[in-house]
Design a protein around this nucleic acid. Structure first.
Lengths: 220, 220
DNA sequence: TAGATTGTTAATCGATTAACAATC
DNA sequence: TAGATTGTTAATCGATTAACAATC
């Protein structure tokens, strides 16, 4: 069973397919062709078929794809058909935002606990999730079979906490701290660098402005 | 002056270069070669040189790159040498998290106001930023020369608000709602889809697990 | 000047799109 | 069966890496 390596680009698109299929289900659409879906999603039909065929043949010639079936298959591929136990480290606004976002639980991500160093926050309960002292981190991870840790703390504290998480057996870090974590290769890190996202936005706004000015200059 | 089109991949990497250069400045490093930087950043030196040369020759043969100079030049490219006026729509945890993140202001993003529909939130002041009723949206945008709107509201409300923002003359939307916004082509949308990020993480955790199981099975 | 390192061209690699035979 | 649409191979396009002449 040689697993062919799936490219990052393909994986990056899967959640978007999943989202669109979910919307189709809500609309009561039963089947869809790669072509119809390509129009909705503004990608090529070719890309959709290529992407899906990395994982198997989910469609049927002359028919297209059954929406519910494809939706369920993508869920399996993404691993969101299974339950993941998650903790949040850093109970500030961002940590609380994640804790309050109920959709994650619908996708199988169960938030089991939150951690902070601020004594004012420790003991508070958010949507049934208790905020604990970071001192309890390791014992909690082991006792509750935690796989994923969301890191919503300042970048200065992130490397130390990441080390502790790795030692405690965490398999994945959802990293919101503005730094690149160094972890062993069997630990997955998914970065959400908001400031980088905002800079990309800034670039695009600025380059648009330059283009417009260039056009205006040309007219004169 | 034909502007050659810069690829999305290159733009995506610029903020990371910027971050590493900032760290080098803090460390007191004056100059760096593409090769040294490539080791730190875990990319190829070739890629660094290619990326930078999209925008001009910032280095010097036999010397490398002056860290402060390159840092300043990338800031110009990203447009973060200029001030951007920003509003946040949706004053929930995520909106408040952004409002409280002071680093954005250091990069020239000035948060001028927050908006919500919840009467309990309207009137509150967060870090000097007042939460206003969404009714005041259009007048506020015009009166305060707002270019960027961060959208931290549920997906159901996002399309309607996006339309209003566009009509009010907003040039860029930083979209945290889990939906793809439809806007005219001169309006920039930068998406931050947290649930998609979490699914990518889930995929990677799940596929790691499968690989390990496959390896174990092979041994038997 | 000699050594180092860029800027840039050429080669390679990978991802996307197009085309079409297979098949429902 | 005829029409539709997939799965998949081939062609194209773009991005990354390698190589090296230019030059500080």
């Amino acid at each position: 069973m040689e697993e062919k390596k799936i490219s990052k680009a393909v994986i990056g698109r899967l959640p978007r397919y999943y989202r669109y299929l979910g919307e189709l289900i809500e609309e009561g659409v039963e089947r869809i062709s790669s072509n119809e879906l390509s129009v909705r999603m503004k990608v090529t039909a070719s890309q959709i078929r290529q992407d899906l065929n990395n994982f198997g043949g989910f469609g049927q010639q002359g028919y297209g794809y059954n929406v519910r079936y494809l939706y369920a298959e993508i869920a399996k591929i993404l691993g969101i058909d299974q339950q993941h136990n998650l903790i949040i480290i850093g109970a500030g606004n961002l940590g609380q935002a994640i804790a309050n976002y109920t959709n994650f639980e619908r996708r199988g991500f169960l938030i089991k606990g939150m951690f902070d160093i601020n004594p004012k926050l420790i003991g508070l309960v958010i949507r049934g999730i208790e905020i604990r002292s970071v001192d309890e981190l390791e014992s909690f991870i082991k006792a509750n079979d935690i796989q994923i840790a969301a890191l919503t703390i300042p970048k200065t504290k992130a490397p130390e906490i990441a080390d502790r998480l790795v030692k405690a057996g965490i398999k994945a870090i959802w990293n919101f701290a503005h730094t690149d974590l160094v972890v062993p290769e069997d630990v997955v890190v998914e970065n959400v660098h908001l400031s980088e996202s905002l800079m990309r936005l800034s670039y695009r706004v600025s380059s648009r402005k330059l283009e417009e000015e260039a056009k205006k200059a040309e007219r004169n």
